[in-house]
């Protein structure tokens, strides 16, 4: 069907590639800030004696994993403008993604800390180390290694999650694809390209995650 190639040119391809940079930027923002949140959540969830912290963190994780990301983006985006905050679109879209990252990565952090056998804690304590010292020198190095494969796996989810910024009209890769397809009517071609770009970003991450996981199992 020759109509597919109406008006579709390399300029559109460039536009899509630019948009994919936006996607990557959103991910970088969400992941770096989300990691901070995740560390806080993870530590709160493993707090030995303060039950309130554990409860609050658990509730946070339940809420952000038990509701659709689409809803989170809607609510955060429109909620922010209601409060009167006029933030640049990039930031407004990043915020729900950061909170989302915080919840999922928080679980990964928690699993990492809990994967450390109690014997490691006891060995550290028996040598006279304080809780923070054991955490910093014994638990964290091991936990970080455990957390890396699932974190890379989560990045894939995050990249896919940025596609939902489409719904508030933010121009990332999916919205760009929609715009181009509306302009050129080369819908199938455009979305195939969009899919390939996402695949090109995510597939290496997935492979890396699997390989890291296998390497971790060998050393255990």
């Amino acid at each position: 069907m020759p109509e597919i190639f109406i008006a579709f040119s390399y300029k559109d391809v460039l536009y899509l590639l630019q948009a994919s940079l936006v996607t990557v930027a959103l991910c970088a923002m969400a992941f770096s800030c989300g990691l901070v949140v995740a560390l806080a959540i993870g530590l709160m969830r493993t707090a030995r004696r303060v039950r309130v912290l554990r409860f609050v963190a658990a509730a946070y994780v339940e809420v952000f994993r038990g509701t659709p990301l689409l809803m989170q983006i809607f609510i955060a985006y429109f909620g922010l403008s209601i409060i009167g905050l006029q933030l640049p679109k990039f930031v407004a879209v990043s915020i729900p993604l950061i909170l989302f990252t915080g919840a999922f990565m928080g679980e990964i952090v928690r699993a990492g800390i809990e994967a450390i056998p109690r014997g490691q804690w006891e060995a550290g304590w028996s040598l006279g180390m304080s809780y923070m010292q054991v955490m910093r020198w014994v638990v964290v190095p091991t936990a970080v290694r455990i957390m890396i494969p699932p974190s890379v796996g989560f990045l894939v989810q995050l990249v896919k999650g940025t596609s939902l910024a489409y719904v508030v009209g933010y121009v990332e890769l999916t919205r760009a694809g929609y715009i181009v397809s509306q302009a050129t009517y080369a819908t199938m071609l455009v979305f195939t390209l969009v899919g390939l770009i996402y695949f090109g970003i995510n597939y290496p991450l997935s492979l890396a995650s699997q390989r890291l996981e296998a390497r971790l199992k060998r050393h255990a």
């Binding site: 014997g119 490691q120 006891e122 028996s126 006279g128 180390m129 010292q133 020198w137 091991t142």
Partner: peptide, 30 residues
């Protein structure tokens, strides 16, 4: 605990430190 040494049945060595680092860690930080 700085003055009482404890040796465990399951060793509990720190997995990502060498033997020398395992032995010197507590000396340095405690």
């Amino acid at each position: 605990r700085e003055e009482v040494g404890f040796v465990f049945q399951s060793f509990n060595l720190f997995p990502y430190y060498t033997a020398q680092e395992n032995v010197s860690l507590a000396l340095k930080i405690v």
